[in-house]
Amino acid sequence: MENQQTSDETAEKFTWTIKNFSKLSSKLYSENFFIGGHPWRILMFPKGNNVDYLLSIYLDAGDSANLPYGWSRFAKFKLSLINKVNSNMKKTKETEHEFNARENDWGFTAFMPLHEILDPSTGFIVDDTCIIEAEIFVTKLEHENQVDQAAKTDTVTPVSTQVNAVSDNPSPKEMSSTSLGELMDFRGLGKIEQAFVPLLEEVCSRHPSLIECQQKRSRRFIEWAFAALGRVLHFLKTKKVKDMNDALFMHLQILWKELETFKFDLTWLEPHVQSALGMKSYMERAAEVKKMKDNVVAREMEIKRLKTKITAAEIDLEIAKRELMKAEEGFEERDLDGELGYEA
């Protein structure tokens, strides 16, 4: 493991080599590795966690069954699938989460399509072996105010999937052109991703209650809340109707469920989110309609082609008839079976 440290953060990398990937079917844990004085491990679903054709990867808080009451670690982390042919082509997603006894794993349900991983030309699997890397920046939270703990207990419900309550927090890189390192102050409330701030400024000016309802929270809680709101706003602002495939539909569902836990008044935003979520059905219907339109157009073109061919054939027939009439002028048909004969 590579190790870098600052006064309040620990950054380390752990590499997990997985052999016989094609033979794996159920979830798989890596060995434990220690960062920030605590054991961690990587959790992988090689066939997807309640999703088809996707690789799911999460960071797990190690010995979760024996975590003490009140234990928590805030971590910014990256999960990467290493490209064994070209190291510059590795697939990386990053996010952040406060791990605790109730929410002890966090990561990406839709990390990467399986067909891309299994394609030999991509370089992610060589000799049926792949490598996953975890890079973690860990901050130990000092009882960050009992107000914050009460807020989380009373208002924040973990966003979980159906298998072992594995939470999915989509990568900021999927939602924003800025990384977690590009932060700026938002109205003195906390540091928020730079791309989200103009969007937050706009909606908070129109809906002052967004700020009012968070003013009694801790700085950390407020940052999480407005980061969650910013992710949804940025999604709606940057995604187009044509982009709404299954992966983005699931992504927006997760972002919206996460945002709802912070108890904003979102009556103004919900119709837009539901409309975006409805785009999946719309896109499916649009694809069906387009297929039928293409079928009609193809048949019309075929009919047009056949009509053109018939017209050309009719012209050829008329020409052939005229040529026959000319050839028959002065021509007397004879019995071809008759004798030629002769006079004696």
Rank of each mutant, 00 (worst) to 15 (best):
P120I: 08
P120W: 01
S121W: 05
S121N: 09
S121T: 08
T122W: 01
T122I: 08
T122D: 06
T122N: 12
G123S: 01
F124S: 04
F124D: 08
F124I: 12
I125C: 07
V126E: 03
D128K: 10
D128V: 11
T129S: 11
T129H: 02
C130Y: 02
C130T: 13
I131C: 14
I131H: 10
I131V: 15
I132M: 11
I132T: 10
I132C: 07
I132A: 06
E133F: 05
A134W: 00
F137G: 01
F137H: 03
F137C: 03
V138T: 13
K140R: 15
L141T: 03
E142C: 13
E142P: 12
E142Q: 14
E144R: 09
E144L: 12
E144D: 13
N145H: 13
N145T: 13
N145Q: 12
Q146N: 15
A150P: 00
A151K: 04
A151R: 02
K152Q: 09
D154K: 08
T155A: 09
T155H: 10
V156G: 03
P158A: 03
V159M: 01
V159T: 06
T161F: 06
T161E: 08
T161M: 03
Q162I: 07
Q162P: 09
Q162F: 14
Q162H: 10
V163P: 00
V163K: 11
A165E: 07
A165G: 02
V166A: 10
N169C: 04
P170W: 05
P170H: 14
S171C: 14
S171R: 13
S171P: 05
P172Y: 13
K173W: 05
E174Y: 01
E174H: 02
M175V: 15
S176K: 11
S176H: 13
S177Y: 07
S179R: 05
L180W: 13
G181S: 04
G181R: 01
L183E: 10
L183G: 08
L183I: 04
M184K: 01
D185K: 04
F186H: 00
F186M: 00
R187K: 15
G188E: 04
K191S: 11
I192Q: 11
A195K: 04
P198L: 06
P198S: 08
L199T: 09
L199N: 14
E202S: 12
V203H: 00
C204E: 01
C204H: 02
R206L: 10
P208R: 07
S209Q: 13
